[in-house]
Design a protein around this nucleic acid. Sequence first.
DNA 1: CTCCAGGCGCCTT
DNA 2: AAGGCGCATGGA
Length: 295
Amino acid sequence: MDSDREKLASVPSHQITLPVRDYDLGLTLSSGQAFRWQAVEGEWEGVIRGHWVSLKPVPGGIVARTARPVRDWDWLREYLRADEDLNSVVSHFPRDPAIHAALAACPGLRLLRQDPWECLASFILSSTKQIVQIQQIVAKLCERWGEAIPTADGDRLAYAFPSAETVAALEERDLRECKMGFRAAYLLQTARIIAEGKLDLEELSQLTVGTARERLESLPGVGPKIADCVLLFGYGFQEAFPVDVWILKALQQLYFPKRQVTLRQMREFSRGHFGRFAGYAQQYLFHYMRTQNRQ
DNA sequence: CTCCAGGCGCCTT
DNA sequence: AAGGCGCATGGA
């Protein structure tokens, strides 16, 4: 019986159902950690490590459809962190009113585990841009310079995220065509450093979070905030706590309503206060602030 | 029209 | 160490 199931599971297929709970797929994919997801008729279409995939929430799980038959679905489980137990993460949060409100405001919000290069490049492009605009820039970059890949419906194509080597071979004006402005030079220089092997992105996952952060911050266009985003969303260093303008507002308003606190002091405070899964707490506070601000 | 956006690098104190 | 400013671009 079990061996039959093994055999069935290893047969290449265009579809799989991943069992998950406490998982708001739409909220997670549109929460500003990844920039390539599009809502199409109740499903979410995107590209993960060169696989076009469509995801649909169903009771008790997520149904994934691909263009080509797939034997090993680990890339998808890893990306969605499908095996992570949200309750055990939340149990490590500090018990304060701010976290409580943020948790209540966005149940089922998750962290993704993205490809490090795509994550790094995307967040280099994120500085002083709104999420919608980052999505547009990344879409242009992929359409213009990414490899064309098949989708589930015949003639329509999707595009992979261009590799560091591909970007490194371009000129700055090629990148500026994608409307990324002054970020073009940063992306190009960073791509060349990686393509030349001067920094090994694969190796970073084996370092301590502090050393990995130092390496990332040595790249042009990568400061503390972007480094923390890459550590959190691309490598799964769950203690990383990106501090951007929204989080600054959130911490100021929720934890220091009486006195003005500098960005540096906020980084200091967040390191001590939020614990092992600080990155998850950050994502909840970030999204909480964004939704509050909408009205 | 002005203001600001999931910042960073460089230049002053 | 800490603060101010310019940087491209587009949406509100």
